[in-house]
Design a protein around this nucleic acid. Structure first.
Length: 495
RNA sequence: GGUCCUGUGGCCGAGUGGUUAGGCAAAGCUCUGCAAAAGCUUCUACAGCAGUUCGAAUCUGCUCGGGACCUCCA
């Protein structure tokens, strides 16, 4: 089966063919560590995490590069030569690198919470100033950049004359050139649409590096081009990021790399859609940001409760990565319950056993189960349709629970079917979707304490002392531990 | 203003022209000391109008609504 991905560049679903058979180079735009990550940031990292995991599952050796943007960029181009990082640093009275470190650590912590696999390489912009400068020099040598007052700009008009600038984002060059915007510093550019490759640093600017054009700092787009080229080559497979980065960021990356390397950087451009909140994109300008720390703690006016990272991960998996997803406390609560139900079915499934040589007594059900399971790969190959796989899993859950409860005879499914079901559930739920569940079952002390409580409750129940047995169950519930009486008289629990 | 996307049942969300998406919520039943969980059942929608077609949520056009980008943005 071949993997098909929606390529933003061609606006069609294409068969994915890596440049080097068996290997995939993937670059994803990482965070700007000038502030705390919010819910919106979670989406690309979780999306490209399961894409990375799936490519690995398919047998590709993937080099996954995700940068850390720690060299600030100007907040409003040309208005003031102050970058995000230095501005915030002054406000918080921190060293720029101290601030960068703080938010980098926080970002890594969040990725850990979401169970995101670490990228193969996580380069920082500040660690690649030399590469960025040399790339700018090459572009200048090619005649597509010019220097003015210590800043270097990309000559977009010249580029657009022979190249299709705007193809990725569906932009029309003439419109861009016509866009009238009166900003300070715009005058030094040959054309308003030209973007900066290097900006001259004003004396008060903290983050600054020496360059052939004087002290300054790199432009917004050049870091990704420089780092992607360095670690993945001039021509690599996948470039990913949020849809809002298509223009101007990715468009400009294409222009820079095309001139510098004489080659468009990536074959496949993958973009995840936005998370909205009450229909509006989550963003600073809308003042509707929910930080990840707030989400995990429930400490936000829009939240009715705290939500676990896995709930968020599941919530994102429940829709296609290219669809916008609207956030609400209610929607997340639904995800929380759904994940719980699914995970419990998975736990049940793990314990089911049937002899391998068992033949299916219910061939209709057996065929259905096989179809649902086999569709996992099919759906994932179809541009990573995680939502459809989850739907199939929910179709399978009643079958699993039915076998456990005895509504469905244990022999209904063939031994080989059950084994395949168990295997694929594990592979998808844990290895590809990256979901985890903490039952506390790995805590020996807690295990022992719970067993003790279960024993006491069983004894109480046996002598019909329901006051005691209900008290144990009720108090455990308030502690967040759920105790269930099974049909066979045993008890199970989970956190 | 320009470019593009989108409008699915109480809510969230899959949907590749013909067949039940799925989840959450709600109702009933079974099981249970009571619960919870689980199982079974019910609720069956595609913004509006027109067109193409034997047949459209799915294609086309128009109208209305929502959103993204055009500026830092995941």
């Amino acid at each position: 089966m071949s993997l098909k991905v929606y390529n933003s560049f061609s606006r069609t679903k294409e068969v994915f063919t890596p440049i080097t058979p068996g290997h995939v180079g993937m670059y994803v735009c990482g965070p700007t560590v000038s502030g705390e990550s919010h819910l919106g940031h979670a989406r690309p990292y979780i999306t490209f995490d399961f894409i990375y995991r799936y490519l690995t599952y398919k047998g590709f050796k993937v080099r996954y590069v995700r940068n850390i943007t720690d060299a600030g960029h100007f907040e409003e181009e040309g208005r003031e030569a102050e970058d995000k990082v230095s501005k915030k640093a002054i406000l918080e009275k921190l060293e720029p690198m101290e601030l960068v470190q703080k938010y980098t650590n926080l970002f890594h912590w969040a990725m850990l919470q979401f169970n995101c696999v670490e990228p193969s390489i996580e380069p920082t912009a500040t660690g690649h100033i030399v590469e960025q400068i040399s790339m700018i020099e090459k572009i200048m040598a090619e005649g597509y950049a010019y220097e003015v007052n210590g800043s270097v700009y990309f000559d977009l008009k010249k580029y657009a004359a022979t190249h299709d600038y705007g193809k990725l984002s569906g932009r029309i060059m003439d419109d861009l050139l016509e866009t009238t915007r009166e900003l300070d510093g715009q005058q030094e550019k040959r054309d308003k649409a030209d973007f900066a490759l290097w900006k001259s640093a004003a004396p008060e600017h903290i983050m600054r590096w020496k360059s052939p054009w004087g002290d300054g700092f790199p432009g917004w787009h050049i870091e990704c081009s420089a780092m992607a080229t360095k670690y993945l080559g001039a021509d690599f497979d996948i470039h990913g990021g949020g849809m809002d980065l298509q223009f101007p960021h990715h468009e400009s990356e294409i222009a820079q790399s095309t001139i510098c390397n004489h080659h468009a950087p990536a074959r496949y451009w993958l973009h995840n859609n936005m998370i909205t909140i009450n229909g509006k994109k989550m963003g600073k300008s809308y003042n509707n940001i929910i930080k990840l720390t707030e989400l995990f703690s429930g400490n936000h006016p829009l939240l009715t409760q705290a939500f676990a990272p896995m709930t968020v991960r599941f919530f994102i998996l429940q829709s296609h990565y290219q669809s916008p997803v609207d956030f609400s406390s209610e929607a997340l609560l639904a995800s929380e319950k759904a994940l719980k139900r699914l995970w419990e079915a998975y736990e049940v499934l793990k314990k089911l056993t049937v002899p391998m040589e068992q033949e299916a007594t219910d061939t209709v059900l057996d065929a259905k189960v096989l179809q649902w399971v086999n569709e996992f790969d099919e759906f994932m190959d179809d541009d990573f349709s995680t939502a459809k796989i989850l739907a199939n899993m929910f179709e399978l859950a009643p079958v699993i629970n039915g076998i456990k409860d005895g509504h469905i005879p244990g022999t209904a499914l063939a031994g080989t079917t059950l084994v395949l079901l168990q295997q694929q559930f594990k592979v998808y739920l844990q290895d590809i979707f990256g979901l985890t569940h903490t039952t506390g079952a790995d805590d020996n002390t807690l295990q022992g304490v719970m067993q003790l409580l279960i024993d006491i409750r069983k004894e109480a129940k046996n002598r019909k002392d329901y006051v005691t047995s209900d008290k144990i169950r009720k108090q455990l519930t308030t502690l967040g531990v759920e105790l269930k009486d099974e049909k066979d008289g045993s008890m199970s629990w989970n956190k």
